[in-house]
Design a protein around this nucleic acid. Structure first.
Lengths: 204, 204
DNA sequence: ATCCAATGTGACCCACCAGTCATATTAAAT
DNA sequence: ATTTAATATGACTGGTGGGTCACATTGGAT
C-alpha cells in the first residue's frame, strides 16, 4: 500500500517515518491522529508523505499491517499443539497479554482498531472478526468431537462470548500497572476458568 | 447542568433543542458531534446555546443524564424479585435489549458513551462502572450464600466477564436487523447459559 | 557540463470546529 | 411612551485538519 517511492527510501528514513506513525496511532485513534504531527515528528515535509502514501488511510492500513504481522509471529507457537481446547485458549490470551507488555505501542494501536468507532474501517474489522470466528469454530468443533466441549453449546454463541471477553481483556491491559505480570496472568486464567466451567454450582 | 435560562424556555423550544442534541449524539460520538449542527437543527443561533449551557460538555452530560434516567426507569422492574441470580441476569439483559429496540437513539448514545474512547469522560465512566460492579458483587454474594453460585469464583472476575459480555451485547444490537426480536432474545439467553454453565463437558 | 526525471518542500486551500461578543430584539415594569 | 434587564443573534476569532501544487533540489545518465 505504500508507493514505490517509499520502498526506495533509505532504511533509516523509512524507519523514522514508520516510528513517527506508530507513535501517533498509538497515541490517538485513527480519526484523531494527525498527519501534520506525524510528518513533523518524522522530520519530513507534508508533501513528501503524499509521495509515499496515497493518503492518511493508506498509511494507517500499512501500519496496521506491520503491527499485525508482528503479533501474528509473536503468537505463532500457541497453536502448535491444539489437542487441548481450553489449554490453547489460555495460552492464547496469556501470550496476547505478554505481547501487550512487550510491545505497548503495538498493543495500543490494535486496541484502538477494535475499540474505537470507525465507520471508515467497518469492512476491514468485520473481515478480521469473521476470520477469527471461522478459526474458533473449527477448533471448537474438534473439541466437541474429542469430548472436551459440551455439544449443546452453539458455536456462534461460544465465539461471541470469547470474543467479547478477549476484547475487554485487551482493553483492560492498558489500564493496569505494568509490573505485577503474575497477578494479571492469574486474572486471565480465572476469567477463562469461568468461561469453561460456568458460575453456577454444579449439581450432578 | 443547564443554566436557568434553559429551564425558563417554553417547553416546545426546549424539546426542539433536546431532540436535536439527541439526534446528533446518537449519530456521532461526543468528539465528532457538532454543536453547529445541533443549533442548526434546533433552529436557534449558536450564541443562544451558550445562554443555555456552559459548553458542549455540559450539554452532553445533560443529555446523558436524561437518557440514563429513561433507561433506569425502563429497567426498574428487573430487580424487584432478586431471589434467582441467573434469572435476574437474564431479565436484565433481555430488557436492555428491548430498551434498545424501543429507544434506538438513546441506545446509540449509551453505546457511544461506553464504547468510544473518551479521555474527557474517563472519570465519569469509571464511576458508572464501579457502581455497577458494587451492585453486581452484592447480588453475587447473596447468590453464593443461597447456594446458586460456585463459591470458588472471584466476584471481581465474575463481574469482569458479565460486564464484557454485556458491553458487547449492547454493541451488537446496533448491527442487527430490528425485526426478529425473538431470535435475538434467544441469542442472549444462550450467551447467559454459557456464562452460567460453562462450555466444558461436566464430568461429575 | 548539461539535462532530465525523480524526489522533496512548505505555503496555501478549503472545510470544520468550539466558543465569543457587540449588537439587536423582546417583553415586562414604570 | 420610556426605561431596563433578560434573552437572542450570527459574524467573527483562532485553531486544526487533510490534501494540493508550483517550485526547488538532487543525483545519475549523457
Amino acid at each position: 500500500m505504500p508507493k514505490e517511492t517509499f520502498l526506495n527510501l533509505p532504511q533509516a528514513k523509512r524507519e523514522k517515518i514508520i516510528n513517527a506513525a506508530i507513535a501517533e496511532f498509538a497515541d490517538s485513534p485513527y480519526e484523531r491522529a494527525s498527519l501534520s504531527r506525524i510528518v513533523a515528528d518524522a522530520g519530513i515535509a507534508k508533501g513528501s508523505m503524499y509521495q509515499y502514501f496515497e493518503n492518511k488511510r493508506e498509511l494507517y492500513l500499512y501500519i496496521m499491517d506491520l503491527v499485525y504481522q508482528k503479533k501474528k509471529s509473536f503468537l505463532q507457537d500457541v497453536f502448535i499443539d491444539s489437542s487441548d481446547f481450553f489449554a490453547v485458549l489460555k495460552k492464547y490470551y496469556k501470550k496476547s497479554y505478554l505481547f501487550a507488555v512487550e510491545y505497548p505501542l503495538y498493543h495500543k494501536i490494535i486496541n484502538y482498531y477494535w475499540e474505537y468507532y470507525h465507520e471508515e474501517f467497518e469492512q476491514e474489522i468485520k473481515e478480521s472478526k469473521d476470520l477469527r470466528e471461522a478459526d474458533f469454530i473449527r477448533m471448537l468443533n474438534d473439541a466437541v468431537k474429542s469430548g472436551q466441549v459440551n455439544k449443546k453449546a452453539s458455536p456462534k454463541v461460544a465465539f461471541f462470548v470469547y470474543h467479547s471477553v478477549g476484547k475487554e481483556l485487551i482493553d483492560n491491559f492498558l489500564h493496569l500497572p505494568t509490573d505485577d505480570t503474575g497477578k494479571h496472568l492469574q486474572f486471565i486464567e480465572a476469567v477463562l476458568d469461568i468461561l469453561a466451567e460456568g458460575l453456577q454450582v454444579r449439581k450432578e
